[in-house]
Write a protein that binds this DNA or RNA. Structure first.
Lengths: 209, 209
DNA sequence: ATTATTCTCACTATTTATGGGTATTTACTT
DNA sequence: AAGTAAATACCCATAAATAGTGAGAATAAT
């Protein structure tokens, strides 16, 4: 028997999902909450296997709820319900260790299947979601080929990104610090960024780290 | 009929894969190459639907081959063959727009299926691979919770990462630049990093950007 | 009500980074 | 042989960041 707690700011959604899950003998909706705060409260006293969590909620959104769960040391399998399919968002969820994420327009079968998987500690991300994650990862590249950086410049970017200053880089490469300075200037102008921060950003977005 | 070009630095692997693919009527191995450079040469004159590409090769590795393909404007569906299952690596592949990636110890069926999918322009990443990608994404978080940053500090980190300097941040937040300076100092010491570069790195690794 | 944290501001001093030049040597291309 | 790109090096000047120290005011927590 899988005990589920439903969290959504709309009672109709809660009722709808409840009625769907009622049909399944292996799942029991033990409680529900209309706010994140309420969910956290109930999770402290109520044994729950799967937390069915809406993302878009006023005041405390789903992500914040998960963060609080971590802070309080409450361990529960989380299945996120979301309407949109944003990649940046998905990334965050995965990084938070959320077990699963399905779109709100998923069918009854998908929902029940997902709850079962998540309750076993397995990961479930609907195809649309992973697809959008891949898409977002794809975007980043390209820039490094657009900008004509020399080998030496790439080398120096990496060293800058690893927190070395001009002198340290000069020592490591056995060249004058003046030369490193020149390279820095050229890099900044080639990348069209204002300062070190922009440089490190570029390094990150182009996997030079 | 799917035309395949096999690239691997071991002739035995090429022969092995060839013999597997021979059994399938819809796939034809048109040629093979033992080095990345040779593969690039052959791709210019030979019509190929799917490039079956080994990653670990001396001199020019698979990733570099894909980069060169982009540079030369050669468009071909790439299916990567890999032995290990490294996440950082997978990320790079996805970012390069590689259609698929399967482990060398995959079975015959998986391989043929993957080639078919990739030839249609669809994406195929074996489960192990995506799993490891998820794992790596999960690791990054935590740090932001470990370090006790205040709201203001997080706010300032974001502004620094977007290439604003101290004065610009002060203007934007309607506070003195001295205050921003103090925050910067506290942030650097809390994060235990040496300079701006380390700060921006932290921002990136913790999705504060 | 008291404590603790956070946010705020200031001063000095030093180190680093940035922006503007110029110039030489090497290696590769045509 | 001439031209070009890359790596090297130096100068000057200014802007910005880092380090150290101290301290008042607002807020949240107990």
């Amino acid at each position: 028997m899988i005990r589920v707690l439903i969290v959504d700011d709309h009672q109709v959604v809660i009722d709808g999902i409840s009625s769907i899950l009622e049909d399944d003998a292996s799942i029991k909706v033990v409680d529900s909450a209309l706010t994140g705060a309420d969910a956290l409260r109930k999770l402290e006293f109520c044994a729950v296997d799967v937390l069915l969590l809406d993302i878009n909620m006023p005041e405390m959104d789903g992500i914040e709820v998960v963060r609080q769960l971590h802070k309080k040391g409450i361990k529960v399998n989380v299945l996120i319900l979301t309407m949109h399919n944003n990649a940046q968002f998905t990334k965050q969820l995965i990084e938070l260790g959320v077990q699963g994420c399905i779109l709100k327009n998923s069918g009854k079968k998908e929902l029940i299947f997902a709850i079962n998987e998540v309750s076993q500690g397995r990961r479930i991300y609907s195809e649309d979601v992973t697809e959008s994650l891949f898409d977002s990862l794809e975007k980043t590249q390209n820039a490094v080929d657009q900008v004509q950086l020399t080998k030496r410049e790439v080398e120096i970017i990496k060293l800058i990104a690893s927190e070395l200053n001009t002198n340290e880089i000069a020592e490591q490469l056995f060249i004058s610090s003046h030369t490193v300075d020149t390279h820095r200037k050229n890099i900044l102008s080639k990348l069209g960024v204002k300062n070190l921060a922009g440089l490190v950003k570029f390094a990150y977005e182009n996997q030079l780290v």
